[in-house]
């Protein structure tokens, strides 16, 4: 469905070149959800904007790579063609439902907007379809002519979802869709998204920092660190057989609900400055298993079986750790 190949995106600023995303590849199958997980500044949102061709230029520059959606290479399209794909074939849900809606437009008009642009529906038809969409996401159709401030956070996120689904996209990019919401509301929204995904047979790219959300919603997982995908595999592979020291550290940092741990085991230090990445592996300074080669040479992604990719020198001989 979606294939991203060797995508690299830089931000070129006065202070230097920031390698926000370097050489990442992944794919999302039809009807499946890929989770893109990582911490602040790992390059998750930049990746999503790169797929949508929405990188602000300047300072953003797409350095190379390809994004292929359903057989079409998006970066070979003209701007006008891209505009017709955006919002109809691919659409995006943003993190903050408070700021992604227009406060002076009724929610009905905001949903109809993309229908009138992409599907060329008449005003009346678009309104009818918008009401159906509201019902689909669990909002009574009568609230069509209300303004965003009349809705709560969870309801606004439902409206944003309704807008993104308006033209039956094949791919939905959800950028931290539940981060701004309370847990009980988050549970409602995740359930809604799962239902809709099944009903409409969409593919979803779910961007989140919450590994709990990943476990719940995703079939495949890519763990990002400092602009690279360090580990990639099915949810079972990542959650049950995690291999990369960063992934292991990430899991060790989370307080567990079902186990009693007196002390957490954090990852020492912080993510390197993306404007000044080290030679060799980006994780070297924080890695408990760092060896001489890690300081000199960037690791490749090694397949350790059944498509489970790990970007770490420890796995260079295709199997168990050899260090």
């Amino acid at each position: 469905m979606l294939e991203v190949k060797n995508l690299s995106i830089n931000y070129e600023t006065h202070e230097g070149i920031i390698k926000a995303v370097s050489n990442i590849s992944f794919s999302v199958e039809k009807g499946k959800t890929l989770g893109l997980a990582g911490e602040t500044g790992a390059g998750k949102t930049t990746t999503a904007l790169g797929i949508m061709r929405l990188i602000p230029t300047p300072p953003g520059v797409v350095k190379g790579g390809e994004v292929i959606l359903d057989g079409i290479s998006l970066y070979s399209l003209k701007k006008r063609q891209m505009r017709s794909i955006r919002g109809s074939e691919v659409s995006m849900i943003f993190q903050d439902p408070m700021t992604s809606l227009n406060p002076v437009m009724t929610i009905g008009d905001q949903i109809s907007e993309s229908l009138r642009i992409h599907e060329k529906l008449s005003r009346a038809d678009a309104a009818k379809r918008a009401k159906e969409l509201l019902e689909l996401v669990g909002i009574p159709g009568e609230r069509y002519s209300e303004y965003p401030h009349e809705f709560s956070g969870g309801m606004r996120q439902r409206v944003v979802i309704a807008i993104s689904l308006a033209c039956n996209p094949q791919l939905l990019i959800a950028d931290e869709p539940t981060t701004a919401l309370d847990v009980t509301i988050q549970a409602q929204i995740l359930e809604l998204m799962n239902d809709l995904k099944k009903k409409l047979n969409m593919s979803v790219l779910m961007i989140t920092h919450d590994l709990g959300v990943v476990a719940e919603a995703c079939d495949d997982v890519a763990i990002m660190y400092a602009g690279e995908i360090v580990e990639y595999g099915t949810a079972e592979q990542i959650f049950n057989e995690m291999k990369h020291p960063y992934t292991i550290g990430l899991f060790g940092s989370i307080p567990k609900l079902d186990e009693d741990v007196d002390r957490l085991t954090p990852i020492k230090g912080m993510m390197p400055d993306p404007a000044n990445l080290p030679e060799g592996c980006n994780f070297q300074d924080r890695c408990p298993k760092c060896c001489a080669i890690c300081k000199k040479q960037k690791p490749e992604s090694f397949d350790i079986g059944n498509g489970h990719l790990v970007k770490c020198h420890l796995f260079s001989k295709g199997g168990e750790a050899n260090a």
């Binding site: 988050q186 549970a187 709990g212 959300v213 476990a215 959650f239």
Partner: peptide
């Protein structure tokens, strides 16, 4: 509330 927390396990 407890049941709503997503647990990082598959």
């Amino acid at each position: 509330l407890l049941s709503a927390i997503p647990i990082p396990k598959v």
